[in-house]
């Protein structure tokens, strides 16, 4: 099974250095969106699904499931219709309306080619992001699924 980026909500401090690293690796355009909640500034990573809804919705085959099991977007085929952003069930594709582009995580292919981990994981200040096999993560899913800290903060605010 392939490796993916995972987020541990309990550790993330919301410093957004993952987005900064992404920008410096991709010609100053960050491919990584952040949630807009004030209580939790979390990075929204592309999950590179098995059956990607974005690829199914794309009218021009700009989004594609590649042979290495990642979902990649072609800059040249994209017509900017934003169907992928609507179709994505996790809301991780956030189009940049000012620049007329639809950035999407490419899992730092150039770093993977050199045997390194993606930039966002390498630069994570708190150790919240990890690059691991999917099977391992599913085994201890209970550890990462729900964030006690986030829940406590959220409940505490509403009380």
């Amino acid at each position: 099974m392939a490796k993916r980026v995972f987020l541990n909500l309990d550790l993330c401090c919301g410093c957004k250095s993952c987005a900064a690293a992404c920008a410096y690796g991709h010609h100053l355009q960050s491919l990584l969106g952040h949630s807009q909640l004030k209580a939790a500034e979390l990075p929204l990573h592309c999950l590179h699904c098995d059956q990607p809804a974005c690829a199914a919705a794309c009218p021009n085959e700009a989004m594609k499931k590649m042979a290495d099991e990642t979902v990649q977007r072609s800059q040249y085929r994209c017509v900017g219709c934003r169907s992928c952003s609507v179709a994505c069930p996790f809301g991780v594709i956030q189009p940049d309306l000012a620049k007329h582009i639809t950035p999407k995580c490419d899992l730092c292919l150039d770093r993977l080619a050199e045997g390194e981990i993606p930039r966002c994981v390498a630069t994570c200040t708190s150790g919240a992001l990890s690059f691991a096999e999917v099977d391992e993560q599913i085994a201890d899913r209970n550890k990462n699924l729900i964030s006690v800290r986030m829940l406590a903060n959220f409940v505490g605010r509403r009380r």
């Binding site: 957004k16 250095s17 900064a20 690293a21 390498a122 630069t123 200040t125």
Partner: peptide
């Protein structure tokens, strides 16, 4: 290896 946004 970690860097904050300012460190970039």
């Amino acid at each position: 290896g970690a860097l904050c946004p300012r460190g970039h």
